[in-house]
Design a protein around this nucleic acid. Structure first.
Lengths: 192, 192
DNA sequence: CAATCGACCAAAATACTATTTTAGTCATAT
DNA sequence: ATATGACTAAAATAGTATTTTGGTCGATTG
């Protein structure tokens, strides 16, 4: 059974990281929000960095869970791909933390945060890669390098969610899903 | 006729920016490489930033020229798309400057460089957008939002050239061209 | 006299120091 | 046995002195 205090600490840290970023969050702050003594945090997490990594990892696990649940056995890759995209784009709060941390990386380049987000990317890409491999075996996708494909899918998602909105208006969830579907699965070459 | 000295200054600046980056390049340095007095630079360019912008703009113009020349009238979008990609990926020296400046943005975020690279991206994307529009009119591409499509094509290229190599081995020019062709034009959904 | 130059200057960047903040510890309290 | 918060060493920040550098302009030259 997971300690009540540990859960409080994690939630407090998520709240503070999302709000102020990693660097600007102090352990005193986290202790205060979690309503525990600062020392207590260190009985569960050895460093501030570990606290961040645990949170990011939990987030990746949860995304994987959400994605896995969105998959309908029997449906093909494309249908499931859209279902997963739709499910994943729902989780606004999870996204807030990731977006805040991404901003921090861009603005001040905190090394611990760079590493944590890299881990997150790797976990997500590994999951996509696995699904792509299965789909290729089943003949639902063309032969292609699964690692590169997973990487580009993830990046296209990020490009659409984070980078496009900096230039023009931000796109809504369904638009993003349908764009990835158009470009990635079907391609824009006219069929003959 | 363009002054000899102006050309020297531009070439000196390209060399120094590529080698040391924008911030670490001093105007004394540029003057020395160009073998002109520092004051002379200011008869051609009002500020260091303008010097950078002129160089970046020239580069965008040259890329557009290269791309335009690679296009064979009569060939369809896909064939020309590959020809352009191939031609563009040849220009190693031009790329070195852009890559160095991109690194500088990631590492120290020099505002003038952020802006200059943004301008470059906009010019390149505007060109791609125009070509996409033509191709859609001719029925060589499916209906799609040309601005988003151009943006994503450019980004995928950057993802492959810059970001992939940070994680794994860097890809060679032909690989990159064929990957973009695969994902973008054909898609990886299995044809039925 | 038109173009070039480089010593010069104000402003910005950097190095250095003093001060404050904070991650992490540990003796004490519950 | 656990939790705590005062404590400390190290890191971050603020403040200051020094150096560097973008940009000017009067002197120079062809």
């Amino acid at each position: 059974m997971i300690s009540d205090k540990k859960v409080n600490i994690i939630n407090a840290a998520i709240k503070s990281f999302s709000h102020f970023g990693y660097k600007a969050t102090t352990m005193d702050q986290v202790a205060k929000i979690a309503k525990v003594g600062k020392g207590t945090i260190y009985t569960y997490f050895s460093t501030k960095e570990e606290l961040l990594k645990v949170i990011i990892h939990k987030m990746a696990v949860e995304m994987r869970k959400i994605a896995t649940e969105a998959v309908t056995t029997g449906d093909d890759f494309v249908a499931n791909f859209n279902a997963v995209l739709h499910a994943v784009t729902q989780f606004q709060e999870e996204h807030e933390l990731i977006i805040k941390l991404s901003q921090e990386v861009k603005e001040i380049g905190t090394p611990e945060v760079i590493e944590a987000l890299q881990d997150f990317e790797n976990e997500i890409c590994a999951f996509i890669e696995m699904k792509i491999n299965l789909a290729i075996e089943r003949g639902e996708l063309k032969e292609c390098n699964p690692k590169i494909t997973a990487f580009l899918m993830y990046k296209m998602y990020i490009n659409l969610v984070n980078d496009w909105k900096e230039r023009y208006d931000s796109l809504d969830k369904d638009e993003i899903a349908s764009l990835i579907n158009l470009y990635f699965i079907h391609g824009i070459g006219s069929e003959e």
